[in-house]
Design a protein around this nucleic acid. Structure first.
Length: 876
RNA sequence: GAGACGUUAGCUCAGUUGGUUUAGAGCGCUUGCUUGACAGGCAAGAGGUCAUCGGUUCGAUUCCGGUACGUCUCACCA
């Protein structure tokens, strides 16, 4: 047999690496500009030292499906891969690793630290890209980029200088979100607010000059009383009006601070009296400015108490909270403690509690440059899939705040700002240039006294240029073949979580630097969750290792599993059974191949009638379904496109078509049918290839020697179809199902041949697919009669009666029960249509078509009732 | 606190420009099958007052409004 050398079960491990290497060897993934239509996707660059997680799997599977499909549609497909330096995350990892080795970052110079960081990057960088290859990602690896590559680095610096020269970048003291663990400011978007159970402490502040009088304030952060510079009440609050002009003593600290009045205070909350700590709360900060209050910063950068107040010096903020409550209790200033739920900001990268802190940072003014970026999304120049994210996007863009772009880190693009001896600042490409600029105002300046800003730029300040900088479009905007050809890119596939971090800012940068949108479509994936709805994360340990999954189910199986239940924008409730389903599907296809491949072919026998009509039917069916698949792709409904293809393969092709044309055991198949079947099979493989690249390439080559690989073959297009064939076959399918049911109910094995009689109607009742019905149902005879048959099992399909003579095998009671059920259904239907049709207002106002349909329903029901009633009569 | 979106079978989701004979799919479930490709399979089934209450209409799962629950975004009261 031909199948002797072919495994009984599909075994992905044997073929995946082989084909991936072959594709690489053939250079299929590499793209250079030519005269074909381009199709370009830039990867959302994963963290350079990260490892593949389920989110990446989903995201990159989707990209690969789009890219492979585009490639097969004859477009010049280019998927640009790369990684992100991820400044906070990577620096944190390097710091932690050094700490393990007993090295403190503080003891290293910037250069020494960066040397360690690069070593770390060389060691771990790109692991994730290797993992993507296992998934089958068809990235153009020759174009792999890293956000800290020299050219991309320089692009970032150029952009900073340009925006500074345009007056959009400024430096200022602001209240920023301070991450005391990473020791850097972070942007608003990097702060995650979480609800936590905490306490509300009521503290008594003695009033100066009033014995035993005090005001009570409520606070969740008693340790910050060290930095209090006022107590504030609402100006209309009668309870406190008598305190105007008075001051209070801060407990323990013994500092006298004024009582001020401001409408900001919510009279209903707490005691209606608020302590003001301008250095450590954003609202207090604003009140402080308004009332010209001093600001006392009580924290060191790492969240410990500094020496300014002389209490709790060097102790951590959370330890101090516990301690100060005890001390306040001792001193008699603690009135009470209540349970309280409030929201606290956490750092996205380090999960440390964010400390609002005043500091000198660099900002990008977002007001004006954001506007055009809002427009292109609202008017669908850039389309979001699903579109519901337009709302979210608009909301953010309309309320956009200035972007804090400096980070107190070393790993990243160092801010090209330079300071002279007196602190004067210039922005320049390098120290030499800065020196020249600074000398204009200070002739005596020595070169070695020029100092570069210590901070680096926010990671997103480099990734927002990604679709441009991967083509070197910032440094070389003109006569840039790649940029002119690939930009704007086509589709961006990413998670809604980084809509603002990244997507919005790429649009802004694209419009600012290319005057063109960076991509035409944004496909937003959902979040991969576990069975009980939790987000998959390392800390929860609920995320399977993607490579283990690939090992178990095969890359194709996992890809199918990921895609089966993930419409755009919907979370993906991941369950391994999905991968199992994907694997089973692979096996199904594999076995279909074994069947077709195993047949003996005869060139002498003619193509039987049943095979001829089966081929006609499948061609129609396939073209119908391809049109649907095309439509799904156009709407970015990848799950639906996959499911349609899945059913076409499994149901239409395997369960129906192959059974229809299958030659009887040990008989050869005629050459024409075999040829046509292989051609059909190959088209199905092509349709499946974007979803399941490996198995399709393998089977493609098992079916004879091919010069061309499936990966670069032409995707079949819908070529129109005859709907009447499809409809007629559907009727035949009903007949077949009914016969099978009769067999099952009467316990008649498939091997035992039956006879089927069709009662002739007024209408032509012959069913084009008689030969197929006869074969599939194992009928020794299929005939037309004009009279009913007795002692026969019967059923009705589309008001045509069918009879299977069974002699003694009829169970009259059972038959009757069945008929009565059907009768009831028909009567219900009749009743509902009659109710409608006898309603004059329905008849007068409903459209004609609807009425005609209702009439047809009525007559069909009547006819059916008549038929059933007669059958019942005959039984009794 | 403000806004957006959602609620259809046990689960995950389609769908209805308001009428398409009895609202669909996949998985799961039930019942038969050692059916000569496949038990990772085949066949036949069961499962839904389309969240809830009102309104518009001849007719509402579909349109409008209220309620409940859920998800997300933004803001935040110490």
């Amino acid at each position: 047999m031909k199948n002797d050398s072919i495994a009984l079960k599909y075994s992905p491990q044997d073929i995946e690496d082989k084909w991936y290497q072959h594709w690489l060897d053939q250079n299929y993934f590499h793209s250079e500009p030519d005269n074909r239509e381009p199709y370009c996707v830039v990867i959302p660059p994963p963290n350079v030292t990260g490892v593949l997680h389920m989110g990446h799997m989903l995201n990159n599977t989707i990209q690969d499906v789009l890219v492979r499909r585009a490639r097969m549609q004859g477009k010049n497909a280019c998927w640009v891969p790369g990684t992100d330096h991820a400044s906070i995350a990577t620096e944190a990892k390097v710091v932690a690793k050094l700490k393990e080795e007993g090295i403190d970052k503080k003891d290293l110079s910037r250069e020494e630290f960066l040397k360690h960081a690069w070593l770390w990057k060389e060691k771990h960088g790109g692991i994730i890209l290797e993992q993507l290859k296992k998934l089958g990602a068809s990235c153009d690896w020759k174009r792999t980029k890293f956000t800290m590559d020299e050219d991309l680095y320089e692009s970032v610096i150029d952009v900073f200088i340009d925006l500074y020269n345009k007056g959009l970048i400024y430096r200022g003291v602001r209240m920023v979100n301070w991450d005391p663990s990473a020791l850097t400011a972070v942007s608003d978007e990097e702060v995650i607010h979480k609800e936590i159970q905490s306490k509300l402490y009521y503290l008594n502040y003695p009033i100066v000059g009033e014995k035993n009088q005090f005001v009570t304030i409520a606070t969740t952060r008693p340790e910050t009383i060290l930095g209090d510079t006022a107590v504030c009440c609402h100006p209309d609050d009668e309870r406190f009006l008598h305190l105007k002009g008075k001051s209070v003593i801060i407990p323990l600290v013994n500092r006298e601070v004024p009582i001020i009045f401001d409408e900001y205070v919510d009279r209903e909350f707490g005691t209606g009296c608020l302590k003001i700590t301008p250095a450590h709360d954003i609202n207090d900060y604003h009140i402080g400015i308004k009332h010209k209050l001093p600001s006392i910063d009580i924290f060191n950068d790492n969240g410990t108490i500094n020496e300014k107040v002389g209490l709790y010096v060097g102790k951590d903020r959370f330890d101090v909270r516990k301690e100060i409550v005890k001390d306040l209790e001792k001193s008699g200033n603690l009135a009470k403690i209540e349970d309280y739920t409030n929201k606290v900001g956490f750092s996205e990268r380090t999960n440390a509690v964010i400390e609002p802190k005043l500091s000198l940072q660099w900002f990008l003014n977002m007001q004006d440059i954001a506007k055009p970026a809002l427009d292109v999304v609202m008017n669908d120049t850039i389309q979001f899939h699903p579109a519901k994210f337009k709302n979210t996007y608009r909301h953010w863009m309309e309320n956009v705040k200035d972007w804090c772009i400096s980070r107190q880190l070393w790993w990243g693009q160092r801010i090209p700002a330079y300071y002279g001896a007196n602190g004067e600042v210039v922005v320049a490409k390098n120290k030499e240039e800065a020196f020249e600029k600074l000398r204009i105002t200070n002739y005596d300046l020595r070169f070695e006294d020029v100092r570069q800003d210590e901070d680096v730029l926010d990671t997103w300040f480099s990734s927002w240029l990604w679709p441009i900088s991967v083509f070197d479009g910032i440094r070389n905007p003109n006569n840039n073949k790649d940029l002119a050809y690939y930009y704007p890119t086509n589709d961006l596939v990413t998670a809604p979580e980084i809509l603002f971090f990244w997507v919005a800012r790429m649009i802004i940068a694209g419009l600012e630097y290319e005057k063109k949108i960076p991509f035409k479509n944004v496909y937003l994936t959902g979040i991969v969750r576990d069975k009980i709805g939790r987000k998959m994360s390392k800390s929860l340990g609920n995320s399977p290792d993607p490579l283990d999954l690939i090992q178990t189910y095969g890359a194709d199986g996992v890809r199918v599993g990921m895609l089966l239940t993930s419409p755009a924008g919907n979370d993906l409730p991941f369950d391994e059974v999905l991968c199992e389903q994907g694997r089973n599907f692979c096996n199904k296809i594999w076995n279909a191949m074994r069947l077709v491949n195993g047949w003996e072919i005869s060139k002498t026998i003619e193509q039987p009638e049943y095979a001829r009509v089966s081929v006609d039917w499948f061609h129609a069916k396939m073209n119908e379904q391809i049109a649907i698949i095309e439509d799904h792709f156009e709407k970015y409904r990848l799950s639906d496109a996959l499911m349609t293809t899945y059913k076409l393969m499994w149901d239409s092709f395997c369960s129906w078509y192959l059974e229809m044309i299958k030659p009887v055991y040990l008989q050869p198949i005629d050459a024409i049918t075999h040829q046509q079947t292989v051609e059909i099979f190959e088209k199905l493989l092509q349709l499946l290839h974007p979803f399941m690249p490996f198995i399709t390439e393998e089977i493609w080559h098992i079916f004879g020697d091919k010069q061309e690989d499936i990966i670069i073959s032409n995707m079949p297009k819908s070529q129109g179809f005859d709907k009447t064939i499809i409809d007629k076959f559907e009727t035949a399918q009903h007949v077949i199902t009914e016969v099978r049911t009769v067999r099952k109910e009467k316990n008649i094995p498939q091997k035992e041949p039956l006879t089927l009689f069709v009662k002739k109607n007024n209408e032509p009742s012959e069913i084009l697919f008689d030969s197929v019905v006869q074969k599939i149902c194992n009928l020794e005879k299929l005939d037309y009669v004009s009279e009913k048959l007795e002692n026969a099992a019967s059923f009705i399909v589309k008001s045509t009666e069918f009879f299977i003579p069974l002699n003694d095998k009829i169970d009259k009671d059972a038959e009757k029960t069945k008929l009565l059920t059907e009768l009831k259904q028909a009567e219900n239907l009749l009743r509902s249509t009659q109710a409608k049709l006898s309603n004059e207002r329905f008849v007068s106002s409903a459209p004609e078509q609807v009425i005609a349909l209702e009439r047809k329903k009525q007559s069909d029901a009547q006819q059916k009732i008549e038929v059933i009633t007669q059958q019942i009569k005959q039984l009794s």
